[in-house]
C-alpha cells in the first residue's frame, strides 16, 4: 500500500482521499441528509459589511429562503443582550436555524456559518466539493486564509486609514502593505486557475468569503492596479445572480463605487463611521 501511494498520480491520490473520506463520512450521512433540504427556518442577522454579505450571497446562491434582521452597527444593536444571546462576541453576522429534530441552531463567525450552510444544504455540491476530496480541504485553506488574514488585516487597514483618532502613518502602511500582499497571493492563485475561481472548476464559499473584502479594497486605501486576475474575478463573481442579489442585503452595496473616488472624498465619507468606532473603542477601554 505504501508503494502504491508513492507512485500514484495526483488523480489517484485524490481518489484515495475520496476513499478515506467516504469511509469516514459513511456513518455521518444519515438518510435524511441524502437529499438537499429545501425547507428551512433560517434567520440571518446582518449589516451591509464585507462579513455580512458573505452569508446573504451564499444563501441566495443556494436558493434558500431566509428571514433578515438588519443590525444597526452604529447604534450598537450588536451589543444588546438579546443579540449577545445569539452571538456573545457582539458582531455580525449571526444565523439561527432549526434542525430536522426541532432543536435550535445558533451560529456566529461568518466562516463557520458558511461551512454549516454548504454542509447541510449544498448536498448537490453547486458551491462546494464533497467531503474527502482534495478540493474540499483546499477550499478550507482559502476560507481560513480570509478569516484569519485578509479580514483582520484589511480591517486594521480600515482602522488606521479611516477611523483612528490620530493619524499613525506606520499603522496605515503596515496594514495596507500586508493587505496588498494578500491580494497578490490571491491574484497569483487566480492566475493559475483555469476556471477563474480560487479552487477547482467552480465558485465556492472561499470566493464568496473574499469577495466583499476585495470589493472594498479601495475603501481601505489598497491600490488595485496590476492585479488583473483579481479584478477580473471581482466581476466574474457577480455574474452569478445569487451573488449579485445577495450583496445588496440588508441594503445596497456601494463599495465598488469607491473605485473612482479620490482620497479626499473617501476621507469625508469615513467621518460618520469614525464617530461610532471611536465611541466603541472608548467603551471597550473602560471595561
Amino acid at each position: 500500500m505504501n508503494g502504491d501511494l508513492e507512485n500514484s498520480t495526483p488523480l489517484q491520490s485524490m481518489q484515495r482521499i475520496a476513499l478515506l473520506g467516504s469511509h469516514l463520512t459513511s456513518t455521518r450521512n444519515k438518510p435524511s441528509h441524502k437529499m438537499a433540504e429545501t425547507k428551512s427556518d433560517i434567520h440571518l442577522y446582518t449589516a451591509q459589511t464585507p462579513n455580512g454579505i458573505k452569508v446573504s450571497m451564499l444563501l441566495e446562491e443556494l436558493g434558500l429562503p431566509y428571514k433578515v434582521t438588519a443590525i444597526e452597527i452604529s447604534k450598537n444593536t450588536q451589543k444588546e443582550p438579546w443579540f449577545l444571546d445569539i452571538n456573545p462576541n457582539g458582531r455580525i453576522p449571526a444565523l439561527t436555524d432549526t434542525l430536522p429534530d426541532g432543536s435550535p441552531v445558533r451560529l456566529f463567525e461568518s466562516g463557520s456559518i458558511m461551512q454549516y450552510l454548504v454542509d447541510r444544504y449544498d448536498t448537490e455540491h453547486k458551491l462546494s466539493y464533497p467531503r474527502g476530496t482534495a478540493e474540499y480541504y483546499e477550499v478550507n485553506s482559502w476560507l481560513f486564509w480570509q478569516m484569519g488574514g485578509l479580514g483582520p488585516m484589511q480591517g486594521q487597514a480600515n482602522h488606521f486609514a479611516r477611523y483612528a483618532p490620530e493619524k499613525i502613518q506606520y499603522g496605515i502602511d503596515r496594514y495596507q502593505n500586508e493587505t496588498r500582499r494578500l491580494y497578490r497571493v490571491m491574484d497569483t492563485q487566480l492566475s493559475k486557475s483555469t476556471s477563474g475561481y480560487l479552487v477547482g472548476d467552480r465558485l465556492t464559499i472561499a470566493d464568496i468569503a473574499c469577495w466583499g473584502w476585495v470589493a472594498a479594497g479601495s475603501w481601505a486605501g489598497i491600490r488595485m492596479d496590476g492585479l488583473d486576475h483579481l479584478n477580473a474575478w471581482l466581476d466574474k463573481v457577480l455574474t452569478h445572480p445569487g451573488c449579485e442579489k445577495g450583496r445588496h442585503v440588508p441594503s445596497r452595496h456601494t463599495m465598488l463605487d469607491n473605485r473612482n473616488k479620490t482620497e479626499e472624498e473617501l476621507d469625508k465619507a469615513a467621518q460618520k463611521t469614525r464617530a461610532w468606532v471611536q465611541q466603541g473603542m472608548k467603551e471597550d477601554a473602560k471595561k
Binding site: S13, I17, L24, R131, Y137, N140, S141, F144, G148
Partner: peptide, 21 residues
C-alpha cells in the same frame, strides 16, 4: 500528508482535516 497526497495550510483548515480524517 503522503498518505493522501494532500498539501494543506492555514492551521484552522489543518485542524478540520486532521480531525475529520
Amino acid at each position: 500528508d503522503p498518505n493522501t497526497g494532500l498539501t494543506l495550510w492555514e492551521s484552522g483548515a489543518i485542524y478540520q482535516y486532521i480531525v475529520e480524517l
